[in-house]
């Protein structure tokens, strides 16, 4: 019963009640993934499993045997060639002031990474006008797709700005 977290393989917890979130935080002391509501209603616990964003608070850790989990701690290392420094999204969140208290931030960033991947494979959203057309990540689209991540400080504009900035940089390169 093993799971891969940020590239390292580790044993799953014995108690099946342990959520993936609590396993990360209390079991592995990976505190970057945050517990906001533990009810699947705020998005602070968002992590990437096999590249897809999910809520780790509603995930029982034992369900994820053999899966590959990336948390905010794994994102920094993945972000640059040397494995040091920040992921471009992390950098953009700082530059655009895409957070205040910083508590929802890891979830927002992991969610944005997953969101971009979904859009790249053409997954539509609630606000996509034409289900048959290719997806363009307009501001409205990003807002809808990020709506599962609450922010109480009110950094919404900065968060969307940061995501747009990274996306436009990708297009330019």
């Amino acid at each position: 019963m093993e799971i891969t977290i940020n590239g390292s393989t580790t044993a799953l917890p014995q108690d099946p009640r342990v959520s993936l979130l609590d396993f990360l935080r209390e079991g592995l002391h990976l505190f970057g993934t945050k517990k906001g509501c533990d009810q699947g209603a705020c998005g602070a616990c968002t992590v990437l499993v096999d590249g897809e964003r999910i809520l780790s608070c509603l995930a029982l850790a034992v369900q994820f045997e053999g899966r590959d989990v990336v948390t905010i701690e794994g994102l920094s290392a993945a972000g640059t060639a040397g494995g040091e420094g920040l992921h471009p999204l992390q950098q953009a969140f700082i530059g655009c002031d895409g957070f205040q208290c910083g508590y929802c931030t890891p979830g927002q960033i992991c969610s944005a990474v997953g969101m971009v991947a979904e859009a790249k494979r053409g997954s539509p959203s609630h606000v996509t006008a034409d289900l048959a057309a290719a997806v363009t990540l307009t501001r409205n689209e990003i807002q809808e797709r990020m709506s599962g991540n609450l922010c109480r400080c009110g950094a919404h504009n900065g968060i969307i700005d940061a995501i747009q900035q990274v996306l436009s940089a990708e297009v330019l390169s």
Binding site: F31, K34, I72, L75, S76, F93
Partner: peptide, 8 residues
């Protein structure tokens, strides 16, 4: 900022 965006 750098600490917060890394969850650190």
């Amino acid at each position: 900022g750098p600490l917060k965006v890394q969850g650190a």
